[in-house]
C-alpha cells in the first residue's frame, strides 16, 4: 500500500510568536518542528504499513529548511520524504496550500493519504477537506480509528456521544485526531538510518501549479493589524479547605448564578 502522510512544519508550542512586518506569523528555523497533530498521522501511516505492507511517504510543503523535519519523519519510520518548496509559495492560505498538496498527491499516487486534524499555528483543520475536493474524493475526516480491508477504508469519528462510522473506497483520504494512537519516538537506529533514506524536492513547476494561484498572490485573506489581549483577571484568592465551599457558594450567589 502506498501511504502518503501530509505533515506541516509549525513553530513549537513554546516558541515566542511574533508577526512579520507584513502581518504573517514569523517562522524561525530554530523553532520549527513537526506539527504535533501530524505525529498522529505519521504514526497511523506506520501502523497501516506494518499491517498491510508498502511504503510511507512524508509530504511537506514548506521552506527549504523543512528538510530537517522531513528527516525527522524518516527517523520516526517513514520510507521517503517529499518537500514541495518554492519562493512563490510563501504566504499561501489554506486553499492555496491544499491546491499544492493535491497536485503533489496526484503526482506521487497513493492508496491512502493521511492528515492531522489541524495545524498548531492556525488551528484551521480545513486543508484536508480542500485537498479532497481538489481531487474529487471524499475525506474521512477527524478519525479516531482507521481500518483498511477489502479495498476500503473505514473510520470511527467521535460524535457528541458515541461515534459514527464512515467508509470509502481506496484510494482514500483521512484526517486523524489525537485519540487514534500514541505516536512513537525516533530510535537511535532510526535516526542513523534516516540519513540514507531518499528525500526529493518538488518546485511549483514540477507540479504544474501556477504561481498566481498560491502564495500571497493567490491568498484571499489578509491580516491588517493585531493587538495584545489581556486575559489576566485580578481574581480573589481564597486559601485553605476550611470555608472554601462556603466562599464559592457565596460567590455564586453574589454573581446571581445561584
Amino acid at each position: 500500500m502506498n501511504i502518503v502522510v501530509c505533515m506541516k512544519e509549525t513553530p513549537s508550542i513554546t516558541a515566542v510568536k511574533r508577526f512579520t512586518a507584513d502581518m504573517r506569523l514569523e517562522r524561525r528555523k530554530e523553532d520549527a518542528e513537526i506539527n504535533p497533530f501530524d505525529e498522529y498521522a505519521i504514526e497511523e501511516g506506520l501502523r497501516q504499513r506494518e499491517q498491510h505492507g508498502g511504503e510511507v511517504i512524508a509530504l511537506c510543503m514548506g521552506p527549504a529548511t523543512a528538510v530537517e523535519n522531513l528527516r525527522k519523519a524518516l527517523a520516526i519510520g517513514a520510507d521517503r520524504g517529499v518537500l514541495v518548496t518554492d519562493p512563490a509559495l510563501e504566504g499561501s492560505d489554506a486553499i492555496g496550500t491544499a491546491r499544492v498538496l493535491a497536485a503533489a498527491l496526484q503526482k506521487l499516487g497513493f492508496d491512502l493519504a493521511l492528515f492531522g486534524s489541524a495545524a498548531a499555528d492556525s488551528y484551521g483543520g480545513v486543508v484536508p477537506a480542500a485537498v479532497a475536493e481538489f481531487l474529487g474524493q471524499p475525506l474521512l475526516s477527524f478519525a479516531s480509528k482507521l481500518e483498511i480491508a477489502d479495498g476500503r477504508a473505514r473510520i470511527e469519528r467521535a460524535a457528541d456521544r458515541g461515534y459514527q462510522v464512515a467508509e470509502a473506497a481506496l484510494p482514500a483520504l483521512a484526517s486523524v485526531i489525537q485519540t487514534i494512537n500514541v505516536p512513537r519516538y525516533p530510535t537511535m537506529k532510526g535516526i542513523m538510518g534516516a540519513k540514507r533514506k531518499p528525500l526529493d524536492t518538488f518546485s511549483l513547476a514540477d507540479l504544474g501549479v501556477e504561481a498566481a494561484q498560491v502564495g500571497v498572490a493567490g491568498s484571499r485573506e489578509k491580516a491588517t493589524s493585531s493587538s495584545p489581549v489581556d486575559t489576566q483577571r485580578k481574581g480573589e484568592l481564597y486559601e485553605g479547605n476550611d470555608g472554601a465551599a462556603d466562599r464559592i457558594v457565596a460567590f455564586l450567589v453574589e454573581q446571581k448564578v445561584l
Partner: peptide, 22 residues
C-alpha cells in the same frame, strides 16, 4: 492568574462539600 475566584485547596475535600451546599 486568570480566574475571578481562586481557591487554593484540595478538590477531594471541596467538591463534595460544595455539591452538598449547592
Amino acid at each position: 492568574g486568570f480566574c475571578d475566584l481562586g481557591v487554593v485547596g484540595d478538590l477531594n475535600v471541596i467538591l463534595p462539600e460544595l455539591t452538598a451546599k449547592v
